[in-house]
Design a protein around this nucleic acid. Structure first.
Lengths: 199, 199
DNA sequence: ATATTAACTGAACCAGCGTTCAGATCAATC
DNA sequence: GATTGATCTGAACGCTGGTTCAGTTAATAT
């Protein structure tokens, strides 16, 4: 047959994905060329097409993999029954997952409009699933009386926005450790959801 | 001399800016061509260069004008001395200003990386000025004892993120009026900043 | 009427794009 | 050592991008 051990494909493939991720995050999908990606991998542009049908698929695979990863990992979490504990748990999970992948979070928000309509729908569907998780969590706490919010839907958007916004400024080597970050945002999230608020 | 009344320049100029804004917001700066912008104005691509030196300047003028407008308008506001009233005032101002210009808000966040380094710095400087306004406002309330937050800096980022995130989903003709939106977010912001929180 | 000139056209320029593909390369197999 | 086939090169393809510019158009001033 042909090579198995010593084959480059198991190296080049991931390297292409990684290079595409970094370049898309830095310059934006439309501004990045296949030749730039190839150069970063140390290969000619044509070689990329052994690993992806086209540039669009390169973007889609990154975004789709990211969302699939997010949902899979959340499904594996053991969520406490108490609404306040569940909130803390979610905040910790969301922050941890997102600050570990700043580039993916970035392009998942920025490059949606560079997706084919069909590809866009696939991502959108997964995103909605995640937003529903947050909404349901808030609703449960409101019904039990643990949370007090003006509007559950709005609050779910606000909570996600303020948590995800962290990747815009947080740096692993900054003045704040990720543990400290989580603690601060748990407190902030509790306040936002009106935990212990006067009836 | 030549034409004054009936001159098209006072019409075409703004039309180009408007077309560029809409297209940049929809497809992204890098994905939009000068020919697309020209077509929307009803003119040939070459004509655009009577109004802007290049494509980059088209983007920069939009972003810079937006930030300048934001700062100018805030400077004209009459801010109450009481920290809680000041917070309400800011929330109302920020929401009103931003939901009236969703495209500008959008590209001001998305297209920063398509700016020249020099142009980027100019925008960044204005953005920092605005963030400082929020930070100072929070700090003042913390010192007076009206606000209770885990960390003033983090809270300022969180507040801006959750307010600005509104443009991602708010529609003028949706289920929520902009008045109602403001009321909800004033309440949410108060909770987030720990107004009336137990000491 | 004529001259003037701002505003615009239409065609061109060239660099660069995504993508293709015939052929070179070379580790694994026989 | 010859064969095989996955992997990659290097050059090319057709096309489109931003930008330029000589020339046309038409509203004003004289």
């Amino acid at each position: 047959m042909a090579r198995k051990t010593g084959s480059h494909s198991e190296i080049t493939g991931p390297k292409i994905k990684q290079a595409a991720l970094e370049l898309f995050a830095r310059h934006g999908f439309a501004a990045v060329t296949m030749r730039q990606i190839a150069a970063r991998v140390g290969v000619q542009a044509g070689a990329i097409y052994n690993y992806t049908p086209d540039k669009q698929a390169l973007l889609f695979d990154l975004l789709h993999g990211h969302m699939a990863d997010l949902l899979t990992r959340w499904a594996q979490e053991h969520v406490p029954h108490d609404p306040v504990a569940a909130l803390d748990h979610f905040v910790a999970f969301h922050l941890d997952f997102h600050i570990r992948r700043p580039e993916l979070v970035f392009i998942s928000y920025m490059e949606l409009r560079n997706l084919t309509e069909e590809n866009f729908k696939a991502i959108e569907e997964k995103r909605s699933r995640y937003e529903k998780i947050v909404y349901d969590m808030i609703l449960k706490g409101v019904r039990s009386g643990d949370f007090q919010v003006p509007d559950a839907k709005i609050t779910s958007f606000a909570l996600i926005a303020m948590l995800t916004g962290v990747v815009d400024w947080f740096r692993e080597d900054g003045r704040l450790s990720s543990d400290e970050l989580t603690r601060q945002y748990c407190a902030l999230a509790r306040q936002t959801l009106g935990v212990n608020a006067p009836a």
